[in-house]
Amino acid sequence: MKKVSFAEFGGPDVLHLIDAEEPHAGPGQVRIAVRAAGVNPVDWRIREGQILGAHPTELPSGVGQDAAGVVDEVGEGVAGVEVGDPVFGEGTGTYAEFAVLSAWVRMPEGLTFEEAAGYPSVVETALRIIREVGVRPGRTLLVSGASGGVGSAVLQIARERGIAVIGTAGAANQDYLRGLGAVATTYGEGWVERVRRLGGVDAALDLAGSGVIRELGELTGDPRKVVSIADLDAPLHGARFSGTAGSVPDALAEAALLIALGKLHIPVEKSYPLADAAAAHVDSQAGHTRGRRVMVV
């Protein structure tokens, strides 16, 4: 089969499309014929060797953890899924023609494989950081860098839970944020005062890692009310860095329910063939995403 791999840590140029042996489902796993794989910031952080403590990586290594496809192999002890079922979930080495998933859920009706591949990690992350930041219904959450995949999920989940959201993003994404129920403003010079004019903030999430932890702590009045998924130095400012996944199966089940009810939709901004994995990582690292980027098999 074809898969994307890297044999050394480094920039996007270390990614190569290679021929590899097919993986097989072990106990508690399923294998899928991959139709699409999500592109996440954690993918290129692993490729650069940034987070080896949280993600030990043996070289050469595959790339990717999110995927959608058709089950073609069911491991021992697995119930409730059969060969031929369309699913999306999390596994390893998902930028490939076949991948093994350790957590999955059946795809809701009407969802495309490309769309489905964009949900697993971002919804798990969104649910986790909303819980960790402790914001309650009727309160206001500030989301810095709100237009990407995690931000799109946070805004919609918060809206469903009765949490007001102020979101920052580039000028081109202001209407997008408003469409997801947020009060929108731009980042850049003067952004703190623009947020203050919009009202008080009870908690804040940093999704972009753009060096704003101190300001978010000032806006909330307490850096302990700030959670970042993108700034490894957040604890130096009294905030929290969240990088450890919670229950992925529970998150996937909630995602599937919200999607089926029409309460969660994350658009696909751009798709790439496996051969263009390096370009996908370049674009992901540049930021300014509206929704999700996915690899298509």
Rank of each mutant, 00 (worst) to 15 (best):
W104Y: 14
R224A: 15
A277Q: 09
D276R: 14
I18H: 01
I46G: 11
L258V: 06
A253V: 04
L141V: 05
K3T: 08
A172R: 14
G93K: 13
T185I: 03
D206R: 00
R47C: 03
E109C: 00
P41M: 08
G246Y: 07
G221M: 03
V183Y: 01
E48C: 05
P60M: 10
A169E: 01
A251Q: 05
I166S: 12
R47M: 11
V100I: 13
G211R: 03
L219D: 08
K263R: 15
V294E: 10
L219I: 01
D250L: 15
F113G: 06
G209S: 07
E82S: 14
G167E: 01
K3S: 14
R178S: 15
R224Y: 02
F9E: 07
R45N: 13
S210A: 14
D250P: 03
P56S: 15
Y187G: 04
V78C: 10
D283Q: 13
E109I: 00
G291Y: 04
A279M: 10
E115L: 07
E90Y: 08
L127F: 12
I266R: 04
A275T: 14
G149Y: 01
G217S: 06
S5V: 11
Q29N: 13
G84L: 00
A278R: 07
G38V: 11
R31H: 08
A116G: 02
R128P: 01
A234C: 02
S284E: 07
Y95H: 11
R47I: 03
V39T: 13
E97W: 11
A234S: 01
E114A: 15
A25M: 05
L274G: 06
A36P: 03
L257A: 10
E269L: 09
Y272R: 11
E48D: 12
G89Y: 00
D206H: 00
G238V: 06
V135Q: 06
G291L: 11
A117S: 08
G217W: 13
D175E: 15
V296E: 09
L261V: 00
G10S: 05
E97S: 13
R292I: 08
R293P: 09
P56W: 15
E124P: 03
E124R: 06
T185Q: 05
P27M: 12
W44H: 14
V34D: 03
A54L: 15
Q50R: 11
L252E: 07
L15K: 01
A169R: 05
V4G: 01
R293S: 12
G110V: 02
V81F: 03
V150Q: 02
S228E: 09
G200F: 09
E97F: 12
V133G: 08
S242M: 07
G69A: 14
R159F: 05
V296M: 14
R128C: 09
M295K: 10
A255D: 01
K3R: 15
A203K: 01
E160I: 04
P41R: 06
I129V: 15
A36M: 08
V81E: 02
R240Q: 13
N40Q: 12
A79G: 08
A184Y: 06
T168E: 04
V42K: 13
S61R: 11
L258W: 05
L141F: 05
G200C: 10
G217R: 02
P27V: 09
L101G: 03
S152L: 12
D233V: 04
E114Q: 14
P56M: 09
S284A: 15
A68C: 11
I32H: 05
Y119I: 15
D66R: 12
K270N: 09
L261G: 02
